[in-house]
């Protein structure tokens, strides 16, 4: 078998982001998605979803965290071409699409001023969201563990822990 017999990835790609489907041509053109594009790049530069931040761009800081099929993943180390079948949720997808109401977690971050510069915040919220989906009433240590891949250099960490725990309590967790 040679590479010509095995076909490269399909020439089109459909992404499911925040419940909406987006189709792209694969290629190197200005509006196309290249096989070498990461999900973070596509979200930001093709879909204008700049709430997903890039800091380290190599998997070490969590700023680019999004949900993929409900789990927290790092969009800077995922190839967009490999995300076709997945449900992606970004920070922009947390608000209620009908009412525009914030997710309780977002509201709790506001109430606790759980940020300083705010650059790390979308990634932290997405990691926390993944945790609460899986474990609606985490302990403080479980929150620390779930956020252990998220960098916050301003050290808003303490307020973040308060915000996540409070959101969990409000959400029905103990």
């Amino acid at each position: 078998m040679t590479p010509t017999q095995i076909k490269p990835s399909l020439p089109t790609l459909t992404l499911n982001v925040n419940g909406k489907l987006h189709s792209f041509m694969l290629g190197e053109g200005l509006h196309e998605v290249s096989p070498s594009h990461t999900l973070a790049y596509t979200l930001r530069e093709r879909l204008g979803l700049t709430g997903t931040k890039i800091s380290c761009d190599e998997g070490a800081c969590g700023c680019c965290t999004v949900l993929m099929d409900g789990k927290a993943v790092l969009s800077c180390i995922l190839l967009t071409v490999e995300c076709g079948e997945k449900e992606i949720v970004t920070i922009e997808g947390l608000e209620d699409p009908e009412t525009g109401e914030l997710d309780p977690l977002q509201q709790s971050f506001i109430d606790h001023t759980a940020f300083q510069c705010g650059f790390c915040t979308p990634g932290i919220i997405m990691s926390a969201k993944a945790l609460l989906v899986e474990n609606p009433s985490p302990t403080r240590d479980e929150v620390k563990e779930a956020l252990s891949g998220n960098f916050c250099r301003c050290i808003s960490n303490y307020h973040v822990l308060d915000a996540v725990i409070a959101a969990a309590r409000k959400g029905g967790g103990e």
Partner: peptide, 21 residues
């Protein structure tokens, strides 16, 4: 007294536009 940061909504929704955005 604690009050809401004016930019809080933009920060938690990802709407805050940093230079790279």
């Amino acid at each position: 007294k604690p009050t809401l940061r004016k930019d809080a909504f933009d920060i938690v929704t990802g709407k805050a536009k940093f230079i790279s955005d």
